[in-house]
């Protein structure tokens, strides 16, 4: 029996390969049409990671060094769901981000802003049975980049998620609702629809806020889903 395919990408919801406002796409964007690949076993399978992959403090970016990092401590939490609204349980979520001064712990980030010896900016966790994840980190700073005159990235956290198959892989960036830099950012603006862009903005959340500790932000992530099958419909009836 053929594997159940995933739903194809919804047209008009993802950034194009060539987006000249983001200069680096020009030489790194295929120009020949992509070839539509029907989903075989090679596409509906994918790596599944166990908790062995995790180190202590992987989900708490403020506890990975001797002292606390400088910056506004915050909780970033949410759910990973699929396009049918079902939780994606047991999936690896990885994040990376700049420190509170807007500098990455990275050899190629030579900008004139301080490194924080107590902040590497990398995190990793696995979603629970309800698809939930939770990180403790600090709010990332803005940083300038060379894309255009006076270019600044909005505050953001990079997210990498696998989901249950090769097809469900996602890398995205989390932004903050109301950030004034958003409309000037060609990476954010490469997501075609306003609804799609809004979906990438974390919202302040009182319920996630921990008294005396840090503000909470909610960020839900949606991975590709499958069309409901008669089998699944039947399953739901029970």
């Amino acid at each position: 029996m053929d594997p159940i395919p995933y739903r194809r990408e919804t047209p008009g919801t993802q950034p194009p390969a060539l987006w000249p406002d983001y200069r680096s796409t020009v030489l790194r964007s295929p120009r020949k049409p992509l070839i539509a690949l029907p989903h075989t076993l090679s596409e509906v399978t994918g790596p599944i990671f166990s908790h062995d992959r995790l180190q202590p403090n992987d989900a708490d970016l403020t506890s990975q060094h001797k002292d606390r990092p400088i910056g506004d401590r915050m909780i970033v939490a949410g759910r990973v769901i699929d396009e049918n609204g079902r939780p994606v349980a047991g999936t690896l979520v990885e994040i990376w981000q700049a420190n509170s001064a807007g500098r990455y712990f990275h050899a190629r980030d030579s900008r004139d802003a301080p490194l924080d010896p107590n902040f590497t900016g990398g995190g990793r966790t696995i979603t629970d049975d309800a698809g939930q994840y939770r990180f403790i980190t600090i709010k990332p700073g803005y940083y300038p980049w060379q894309n255009h005159e006076n270019a600044w990235r909005p505050a953001h956290i990079h997210f990498s998620v696998f989901g249950p198959s090769f097809v469900t892989r996602l890398i995205c960036q989390m932004y903050f609702e109301g950030d004034p830099m958003l409309p000037f950012d060609p990476i954010y603006m490469s997501v075609p629809s306003e609804a799609g862009r809004k979906q990438l903005c974390a919202a302040f959340d009182y319920d996630l806020t921990v008294p005396g500790f840090g503000l909470g932000y909610r960020f839900d992530i949606v991975l590709r889903g499958r069309d409901a099958t008669p089998f699944e419909a039947d399953d739901h009836a029970h």
């Binding site: 990408e9 919804t10 919801t13 993802q14 950034p15 983001y22 680096s24 769901i81 699929d82 396009e83 049918n84 609204g85 990885e94 994040i95 990376w96 700049a98 990455y104 712990f105 990275h106 190629r108 980030d109 590497t120 900016g121 990398g122 995190g123 990793r124 990079h158 990498s160 996602l170 890398i171 995205c172 960036q173 990476i187 490469s190 997501v191 609804a195 799609g196 862009r197 979906q199 990438l200 992530i221 949606v222 991975l223 590709r224």
Partner: peptide, 17 residues
């Protein structure tokens, strides 16, 4: 129905993770 979150580049600074 929710739709797949919008992709973004990994950027140049992913190596620590």
């Amino acid at each position: 129905m929710p739709i797949e979150s919008g992709w973004a580049t990994v950027g140049p600074f992913f190596h620590a993770v």
